[in-house]
Design a protein around this nucleic acid. Structure first.
Lengths: 114, 114
DNA sequence: TGCTACATATAGTCTACCTATGGGAGAGAG
DNA sequence: CTCTCTCCCATAGGTAGACTATATGTAGCA
């Protein structure tokens, strides 16, 4: 029953898209590291979640990939955002915001009356 | 491709617990209505999601149920929060807050330093 | 020559919400 | 009285999306 620091279903694409939008082309491993560090270990993206997600994002045309050498001189696949991916990011961010606000309206006991 | 106003996985228990905590004993149908109205239709709890969830909450001991008559004089099962349910609500709310904040840290480019 | 860290990838499992379906019971209309 | 509408509960089956476990391979270092 320990606190699971898994990411909420439905937010993975948004997080990955955002990381690429902010930091430019990155490889999968780096994206995972980045998210973990930015959230101070609160969110951990498992590799078994990330790589399939990246594949789907390629198919959807949200990112493109290119094999390069990493800083450590290893083969790595660098992902970049496309225009379509940028639009998707906007949609997902907007929707996340809307839904999160709705939830807060329920769980936050703000005394509002008509 | 319309915006689906389904509730994010993992938040249903929290929402139901909170509604009961705020408004006292309610029947399932009323809980669903309440959430829909509070969120101005952004969140819609389907009956096929709600009733099974309530059953699980009974088993977990978060709520107790009692058959009564509704305002419309119909048979209805009224659910009340238990002490255990109240603790669960606190845990889930805290965790939701923590995770949501973490996500915002990624998608919102707020320049915060230590 | 191992050992560790980096880097990608797939198969299978599990959770949890949704859609679809069905039924019973009270209230108002005719 | 009966028909229909709304209220209210409940279950079965489908599906999405993240996880665990596993597998492969390379670079750098002792």
């Amino acid at each position: 029953m320990g606190e699971r620091t898994e990411i909420p279903p439905g937010t993975l694409y948004m997080l990955v898209l955002k990381v690429l939008a902010r930091s430019g082309p990155m490889h999968g491993y780096g994206i995972a590291q980045h998210i973990q560090q930015t959230t101070e270990e609160v969110l951990r993206v498992e590799e078994g979640s990330l790589y399939p997600a990246l594949q789907r994002m390629l198919v959807k045309g949200w990112v493109i990939a290119e094999w390069k050498r990493s800083d450590n001189n290893r083969r790595a696949r660098y992902y970049s955002l496309t225009a379509k991916g940028r639009r998707q990011l906007a949609v997902e961010t907007s929707n996340f915001s809307k839904v999160t606000n709705a939830i807060w309206r329920v769980i936050d006991p703000a005394p509002e009356d008509a």
